[in-house]
Lab assay of single mutants.
Amino acid sequence: KELVSALYDYQEKSPREVTMKKGDILTLLNSTNKDWWKVEVNGRQGFVPAAYVKKL
């Protein structure tokens, strides 16, 4: 599985998104959309802005 690192804090703005803190390591589930990537963090799945994470 592919991992990404959070470059910035992000506070979810809808139920489809997830909150992350800078430095968090997230499991990348889907990166086909260039703007929003689906990740899993702390057992929750949702979307984060692609520009806020980088692949490890």
Rank of each mutant, 00 (worst) to 15 (best):
K1R: 14
K1A: 13
K1Q: 12
K1S: 11
E2P: 12
L3V: 09
L3H: 09
L3A: 07
L3K: 11
V4H: 06
S5Q: 15
S5C: 15
A6V: 10
A6K: 01
A6P: 02
L7C: 13
L7W: 05
L7M: 10
Y8R: 14
Y8K: 12
Y8S: 10
Y10C: 01
Y10Q: 00
Y10D: 01
Y10W: 11
Y10P: 01
Y10A: 00
Y10S: 01
Q11G: 08
Q11W: 13
E12R: 13
S14W: 06
S14P: 05
S14C: 12
P15R: 10
R16P: 05
R16C: 15
R16L: 14
R16A: 12
R16D: 12
E17R: 04
E17V: 05
V18F: 11
V18M: 10
T19K: 04
T19R: 06
T19A: 07
M20E: 00
M20N: 00
M20K: 00
M20Y: 02
K21H: 11
K21C: 12
K21Y: 10
K21Q: 11
K22C: 08
G23I: 01
G23W: 04
G23Y: 06
G23C: 06
D24M: 12
I25P: 03
I25M: 08
L26F: 07
L26H: 03
L26T: 01
T27D: 05
T27M: 12
T27P: 13
L28Y: 01
L28V: 09
L28A: 02
L29C: 07
L29P: 00
N30H: 08
N30T: 07
N30R: 06
N30Q: 11
N30M: 08
S31M: 11
T32Q: 13
T32G: 10
T32Y: 10
K34R: 13
K34F: 08
K34P: 14
K34C: 12
W36T: 02
W36L: 04
W36H: 03
W36F: 07
W37M: 04
W37Q: 01
K38D: 04
V39I: 08
V39Q: 00
E40T: 05
E40F: 06
V41A: 11
N42I: 04
N42W: 05
G43S: 06
G43Q: 06
R44H: 08
R44S: 06
Q45S: 12
G46L: 04
G46E: 01
F47R: 03
V48T: 01
V48S: 00
P49I: 02
P49L: 03
A50Q: 05
A50F: 02
A50G: 05
A50E: 04
A51K: 14
A51P: 08
A51R: 14
A51N: 13
Y52F: 14
Y52E: 03
V53M: 06
K54H: 11
K54M: 12
K54L: 11
K54T: 14
K54P: 03
K55S: 11
L56G: 07
L56K: 06
L56N: 07
